[in-house]
Design a protein around this nucleic acid. Structure first.
Length: 818
RNA sequence: GCGGACGUGGCGGAAUUGGCAGACGCGCUAGACUUAGGAUCUAGUCUCGUAAGAGGUGGGAGUUCAACUCUCCCCGUCCGCACCA
């Protein structure tokens, strides 16, 4: 039997016509299993680099199905947003046409790879029946005060001509186009994800089956820190300046204050400053620095004195107030107390502008040194010095004591700060779900009522980004009546971030055709959380945190009853070619069509699963693909041999038969273990290869009865079924079973075949292998040791001396110490 | 700078409650079959050595009968965050 693309087509047709992957949500006879892969941006057709995700997902789904689970494996399209729109613009096609064309093409690709989905549940985020509910979600958030509009400094990509969320700025550059991101003051829509910061952090503990790496990244991104917000009176003024610090124990060393250029007090503070113009120039300069400039090592700290002073509430000393370029605007209060002796950044600044340095923490490793002329700041903990009544206290105790003292005297309050910022969701782009808000002159912001949803995205010819949403120019869209007072009003023209669309799609799969609700809570509660989620690590923060947030919000509103959307997460590595990520511009894309045509889709699937541990990056090599092709042919030849096999054994000696039986069941055991572990497809496949090799070897070396041989062959194709479904179906049928192989249960280990009477163990002398002996498992330890000591090689090494020690490890080794 | 992961043949990678290092695949070598094929089969393939043997998992130390695996130090690579006060 030879593997041809006819076999692929035959079984793809069979699966489709017999609805093999259609799920009955109400079938309670089997446990449910929701297997989800991150749905693609249909911004271009797929190449083998994309394929890994879907092939892994399909292998998992098929395996679980064979294990008797009621498996839901759906597919859809993250169709709105920058990825598709940017590609459409490049190709001079309308985003809608471009997207729908790609969806058609990718569907056909996935089918040609034999990926089994319940296509009746397909969701497409750019279609009104879906984005109606994305808009609904926006309004739900709005009603609870979790969607709001404010003017703030925001990230702006000049190339994409839109604002971006913090999460979409990678090292100061745009996540999509890698252009420099700048800060602009704009009035924008935000989701209040910060209200969920603590819960998003706490519930990471519920995610025991997520990769630690992803959890650590989210933990860092949320960035909780505990400290004290201290109130600094301003000399000669009646108002108070708040500063957050995590090191309140260094308060006696705080010698100046630094404000960010955005601080709300600046206007007031510099009102009477003689160098007001100079200050304004400085602010202007800092404002226009690109974000990424801060990331460079040579970024120089600069500042300007405001002329005002704050009072250190514990020392009573005057602290000059500066404006400095290294102070972050959005974190804490945008103002900090500076302790140059114990903060390297403050020290750098203090040295440059000749500001006072006072040591207040004793570095236990340094010698007694009272001078304040420091080389570097000591940022560690230690006993307090120069700190009045708190002298000699260790840092941690001092933090407690001083916080207490401040709270008692109304100088400061304990506080918690997060790095996490609210999620900026509005975009000045065409290809997205319109934000369902109407602005009325008399009523203000009014959400579109649910029965008026969806707010349809108008069909336009001019969709190119200009910096204003293209919807702004469409009168029929913008001009509406106020839903409250029926007066003249205007629609919001910005569209939503794609990540809003994808933050809830896994719920819609459960009720994809539901007209009156986003989903049916009852079914969703039965089928979620997702048992297994599979996708790229690039979404470790973005999509995975937004989805967690939305999930928690919907739970709070009573729509769902589970705290986390994804029970288990698997992040697969990238497939690279010539050391680089596959991309058209680099010209290293491997197209799957050609491979499938020449080797069949099972070969591609097998190779992608075999090429390395799935969570790690792997290099595509055509030779590796050929190896898998050879393996498949070699395994299929055994099927022909089964058909031609005689019924009776040729000889009485059944040694080979026993070896094969043991190997068959050992393979079942090991492959199952690999799949139940962390999806070690590469080792699972290597074990099946061993079984194939062993089968050939046994056939060559002795006599085997047909049923044992057939069992070995049948088993290998059952074990291969999640990886190479087409040939497995074919072989299953040839061997006389009814399709589909997915209804055939996963092979079970028969323990009796694993119990062997004889094992070969290694004999070591001083930890080095010298010889091997076969032992009967019934032998006593002493007998085994004697046998080992009687070996020629051992005697030679011993040369009349007696061994110091002999150690036996059960069925593994004898180690003789000389 | 902080946090995390990792380092094994010519290559992708196996093996970690400490127990035969290099499974499986690629590549390579030799042979067989074959009137050329990028097919198949057999044998071999960590290093040095004809062999007996010796050495070997980034480097160095340590624990142990036994270390890729555990401890300490150093070197290197990759990833994430990045002036978060």
């Amino acid at each position: 039997m030879k593997y041809t693309s006819e076999i692929d087509k035959k079984w793809q047709k069979y699966w489709q016509e017999n609805d093999i992957f259609k799920v009955d949500l109400n079938d309670n006879s089997k446990p449910k299993y929701y297997c989800l892969v991150m749905f693609p941006y249909p911004s271009s057709e797929l190449h083998v680099g994309h394929a890994r995700n879907y092939i892994i997902g399909d292998a998992v789904a098929r395996y679980k199905k064979m294990c008797g689970k009621n498996v839901l494996s759906p597919m859809g399209w993250d169709a709105f947003g920058l990825p598709a729109e940017n590609q459409a613009i490049k190709n001079k096609i309308h985003p809608r046409d471009w997207t729908l064309k790609n969806i058609k093409r990718i569907t056909q690709q996935l089918k040609s790879w034999g990926i089994g989905y319940d296509w009746d549940r397909e969701v497409t985020t750019c279609l009104p029946d879906y984005y109606k509910w994305t808009q609904w979600l926006f309004i739900e958030l709005y009603k609870k005060g979790l969607a709001y509009r404010k003017e703030a400094p925001v990230n702006w990509c000049e190339s994409c001509k839109t604002v971006l969320a913090n999460e979409q700025v990678i090292s100061g550059k745009c996540e999509r186009c890698s252009n420099e991101v700048i800060q602009k003051n704009l009035r924008q829509w935000f989701f209040k994800i910060t209200a969920y910061a603590q819960r998003l952090l706490n519930d990471l503990e519920l995610l025991s089956q997520w990769p630690q790496r992803v959890k650590t990244m989210q933990d860092n991104w949320i960035g909780r820190s505990e400290g004290v917000t201290i109130q600094f009176p301003i000399d000669g003024e009646h108002y108070i300046l708040d500063c957050f610090t995590t090191r309140v124990d260094t308060i006696f060393g705080a010698t100046f204050i630094a404000l960010s250029w955005e601080h709300p007090f600046i206007e007031e503070i510099i009102k009477e400053a003689p160098n007001k113009d100079e200050i304004k120039n400085f602010i202007e300069k800092v404002k226009n620095q690109p974000l990424s400039a801060r990331l460079i090592d040579s970024f120089e700290k600069e500042g300007i004195f405001t002329g005002k002073h704050a009072i250190n509430p514990l020392t009573g000393k005057k602290m000059p107030i500066w404006i400095a370029n290294y102070i972050l605007t959005g974190y804490g209060t945008g103002a900090i107390m500076c302790v140059p002796a114990h903060d390297s950044r403050d020290l750098e600044f203090a040295k440059k502008y000749d500001l006072e340095v006072i040591k207040v923490i004793h570095d236990p490793k340094s010698k007694e040194d009272k001078t304040n002329d420091l080389e570097s700041a000591y940022e560690g903990k230690g006993a307090l010095i120069n700190s009045g009544q708190f002298d000699n206290l260790p840092s941690l105790d001092a933090q407690e004591e001083i916080a207490l003292y401040m709270e008692e005297n109304d100088i400061g309050k304990r506080a918690i700060n997060y790095k996490l910022r609210d999620w900026l969701v509005s975009r000045q782009r065409y290809w997205g779900a319109p934000i369902p808000i109407i602005y009325c002159e008399s009523c203000g912001e009014v959400p579109v009522s649910e029965d008026k949803l969806p707010v349809l995205l108008p069909e336009v010819e001019k969709f190119l980004p200009t910096g204003q949403s293209p919807l702004t120019y469409i009168k029929e869209f913008t001009d509406v009546k106020c839903p409250k007072c029926s007066g003249q009003a205007k629609r919001e023209t910005d569209t939503m971030d794609t990540f809003v669309d994808s933050s809830w799609y896994f719920l819609r799969y459960i009720s994809p055709k539901e007209k009156d609700q986003p989903f049916l809570s009852h079914d969703v509660n039965n089928w979620l959380a997702v048992d297994q989620y599979i996708g790229g690590v690039e979404h470790a923060i973005l999509h995975l945190m937004y989805s967690r947030f939305i999930n928690k919000f919907l739970k709070d509103q009573g729509w769902i009853n589970f705290p986390e959307p994804f029970t288990r997460l698997f992040t697969q590595g990238m497939i690279v070619k010539s050391g680089a990520k596959m991309s058209k511009s680099k010209g290293n894309v491997v197209a799957p069509d050609y491979i499938i045509e020449k080797y069949g889709s099972d070969t591609m699937r097998l190779y992608i699963l075999f090429m390395g541990p799935p969570q790690k990056d792997a290099e595509w090599q055509d030779e590796g693909l050929q190896g898998c092709w050879r393996f498949i042919q070699r395994a299929l030849r055994l099927v022909d041999m089964v058909k031609e096999f005689g019924e009776e054994p040729l000889e009485e000696d059944l040694t080979q038969e026993k070896i094969l039986l043991t190997k068959t069941h050992l393979t079942i055991k090991e492959v199952t273990k690999d799949l139940e572990g962390n999806f070690q497809f590469n080792t699972a496949i290597s074990r099946i290869m061993e079984l194939v090799n062993q089968t050939y070897k046994c056939l060559n070396e002795g006599s085997i009865r047909k049923d044992v041989f057939k069992e070995a062959v049948q088993t290998m194709f059952l074990l291969l079924a999640p990886f190479t479904p087409h040939i497995s179906e074919e072989v299953n049928q040839i061997l006389g079973n009814e399709p589909t192989i997915l209804n055939h249960s996963w092979p079970q280990v028969k323990q009796e075949y694993l119990e062997v009477k004889e094992v070969e163990i290694a004999v070591l002398i001083n930890g080095r292998v010298r010889d091997k002996i076969s032992i009967d498992v019934g032998w006593s330890e002493d007998k085994i040791k004697d046998q080992a000591l009687a070996l020629e090689k051992v005697k030679k090494q011993l040369s009349d001396k007696s061994p110091k020690k002999v150690i036996y490890v059960d069925k593994k080794i004898v180690n003789i110490v000389i």
